[in-house]
Design a protein around this nucleic acid. Sequence first.
DNA 1: GAGTGGTCTAGACCACGCA
DNA 2: GCGTGGTCTAGACCACTCT
Lengths: 239, 239
Amino acid sequence: MNEAPGLQPLYQQVYNLLVRRIVDGVWRPAEALPSEQMLAAELGVSQGTVRKALNAMVTEKLVERRQGKGTFVAQHTQERALFQFFRLRREDGSRVTPESRSCTVKRRKAKSQERQKLDLEEGAKVVEIRRTRLIDEVPTLVETVIVPLALFPDIDEIGALPNTLYSLYQSRYGNSVVEADEQLRADAATREDARRLNIEVGTPILHIDRIAIAIGGRKVEWRISRVTTDKVVYAIDLN
Amino acid sequence: MNEAPGLQPLYQQVYNLLVRRIVDGVWRPAEALPSEQMLAAELGVSQGTVRKALNAMVTEKLVERRQGKGTFVAQHTQERALFQFFRLRREDGSRVTPESRSCTVKRRKAKSQERQKLDLEEGAKVVEIRRTRLIDEVPTLVETVIVPLALFPDIDEIGALPNTLYSLYQSRYGNSVVEADEQLRADAATREDARRLNIEVGTPILHIDRIAIAIGGRKVEWRISRVTTDKVVYAIDLN
DNA sequence: GAGTGGTCTAGACCACGCA
DNA sequence: GCGTGGTCTAGACCACTCT
């Protein structure tokens, strides 16, 4: 029970402890957690308190609960990577599935701006991934992805990168992206944009600057996407 | 108690009923709801069930709860209108407060596209508001706002419109905006954009198309904002 | 001190999934 | 039939606000 008040509500402490275990990999993605009863017994609190902590984790999409089956660590489905963090839609709102082409991967030392964006030390190495992506078979966006080599040790040695990198980040490296901070602006197509997207230099394009944050708050990716918005739009629901 | 299962959990039914009362104006913004005890007694359910419904309303920002004081219908503070639905920030992430100038207001019949966007009948009237808005004293965006006259009967007869329209929608007309669907794209500045924003024709600008939705699901506003993103960016947090 | 929401507990019963 | 999470209840105690 509640020996020392601990300055935090019990269910908060339980929440923190359970999140910690997921971050530390005690329970891996798609694995089942112990039942409420088991956790309550282990931690010496009531089932209701465990439930409150677990439900908070559900709303943050850290776990999924299925009646009759159990509580499972959330897995990065293709679905989620694509539709939670990929906001491009056709004008009628329908979802699109981008394909990748002409992917280049380089390992190098982080530039100063990259170190700042990703909280890296002087001399840290990063991997740069550049891709052109097609939507409905039309080249629509160019993407530059910067990830710290320390977090993804051999990512530059994999032959074919998957279409949704976030699934790979989780399954191969244990980094589950749960949040992304984006900044959008309008810009004019550079010569390189124009060449890759088959448009005129100076055409207005949507410039998206994203920092992806993994469970535990670590910045794991800096991504710049430059998009032609004649066929697709960036759709978002504020509430 | 639970006479007929009703096909919905009890707390859901309580939730629906309480939301209905707020929509119908039984309790007005900033008013206090009855205490949990009172509601539980009135509805013949336990306090815990009422609490679950109220907490759901808290997460949707329909009410606010203050320990020791009570539960209050959420009020559209300047704060919320500005920072929940207005996503422009300086590049360092700091908030900006836009001012308005050269505001024009016209009443007219809705065009076909406007009827479609706002679910209006043939012949319905709308009010069109056009404003140029300054950020840090620099003209930064042009805004076109279309609202149904039926929902805002005399909005074209008010002298000076406030900076944050959503506060007015709520306080004067009882329409509380709780959600906004936005579509963003890049576009080139038209001659009129150029004149109003003091930029070159063809400069890339960020085009934001928004439908604002009030409590109860009614579409209450169609707004197009066209923004120069050299000093500010559209910042959003996906999670 | 009275009244409010916030936390925590304990237990009953239900709906679901599976063997 | 058993174990899981989902709903609902009842009651104790705490923290905060106001008078």
